[in-house]
């Protein structure tokens, strides 16, 4: 059963035009080919999954979109602008936020500060005004605080707002990671295995959060995930990578029925 069908609220969600298009991207580290001529697109407001066996190049793909890696060939069109290389902070400025497979949180800082840091780009006022908390800076800080508190409520982590992130259990850290990405009010959210290492209950919570983000804020989501059940439930369309090549692309049902995908996941007799 698809979670989408079960929730009437999702009917209102409208998948729009192509917001992000990847064309012919190839990436190699020395002799190792991580990605070979991969093309796919992501439509506005949809949940797009990238799946594939270990080492298929999923994280590399995310890192190319996010600007951590520079592909040797190919280009990426994001909201009508073509580019081949990118810097992570410029991607962030353009509205692409991400979470990390192995957590990359600011461990020494509180949950609140982690989220506020996520809004760094949205802060406008002068640093001296900020330090003294006067004039427009005070109003701005209050506004940022309010937005962040909303996200904290949304993710149900009010009880640990002031706790240094390093002390939280893994499942909650994953939520903070998502929250920090959300705090930037992104157009596109890249999630790198948001449910890795979680138990069933935590996975269900995380699924709910991802769907709610997509429904309530209309955020476009690109998702990497290992758990096939989760992927099939969550996503509108799925791209399948194997050894750095795209082997299938379509709705969950189409992908599930695809022989190449079955072979890649289950292996073939030689």
């Amino acid at each position: 059963m698809n979670l989408r069908d079960a929730e009437p609220a999702t009917v209102a969600r409208r998948v729009g035009d192509v917001i992000l298009a990847v064309e012919g991207v190839s990436l190699a580290f020395g002799g190792v080919k991580a990605l070979t001529d991969v093309s796919f697109d992501v439509r506005e407001h949809e949940v797009r999954a990238i799946i594939g066996p270990n080492g298929a190049g999923k994280s590399s793909m995310l890192n190319v979109i996010n600007g951590v890696y520079r592909p040797q060939a190919g280009q990426i069109t994001y909201r009508g602008t073509k580019r081949s290389a990118m810097e992570p902070h410029i991607a962030a400025r353009a509205g692409i936020a991400r979470t990390f497979q192995s957590l990359a949180l600011f461990k020494g800082m509180s949950v609140l500060d982690n989220m506020l840091a996520g809004r760094t780009l949205l802060m406008k006022s002068n640093i001296f005004l900020q330090a003294l908390r006067i004039g427009p800076a005070l109003a701005e800080e209050t506004e940022h605080r309010k937005r962040v508190e909303d996200i904290i409520d949304f993710l149900e982590i009010q009880h640990v707002r002031k706790t240094p992130v390093g002390r939280l259990p893994y499942g909650l850290q994953k939520r903070v990671d998502l929250g920090r990405a959300l705090a930037a009010e992104p157009k596109v959210l890249l999630l790198d295995e948001p449910m890795a290492g979680m138990n069933v209950e935590e996975k269900q919570d995380m699924c709910r959060f991802i769907l709610d983000v997509n429904d309530e804020f209309g955020t476009t989501i690109v998702l990497i995930e290992h758990d096939m059940g989760v992927v099939m439930d969550l996503s509108d369309r799925v791209v399948v990578l194997d050894y750095g090549r795209k082997i299938a692309d379509g709705t969950p049902d189409e992908v599930r029925a695809n022989q190449a995908v079955i072979d890649a996941y289950l292996g073939v007799k030689h």
Binding site: N66, V68, E87, P88, H89, A92, R93, A97, R98, F100, A104, L105, F106, K107, G108, M109, D113, A117, G118, T120, L121, R180, A181, A184
Partner: peptide, 15 residues
């Protein structure tokens, strides 16, 4: 402080 904690994450949020 964010950069001091984690370079990669700091870049991803636009620092």
């Amino acid at each position: 402080r964010a950069v001091a904690d984690d370079h990669q994450a700091a870049q991803s949020i636009g620092i």
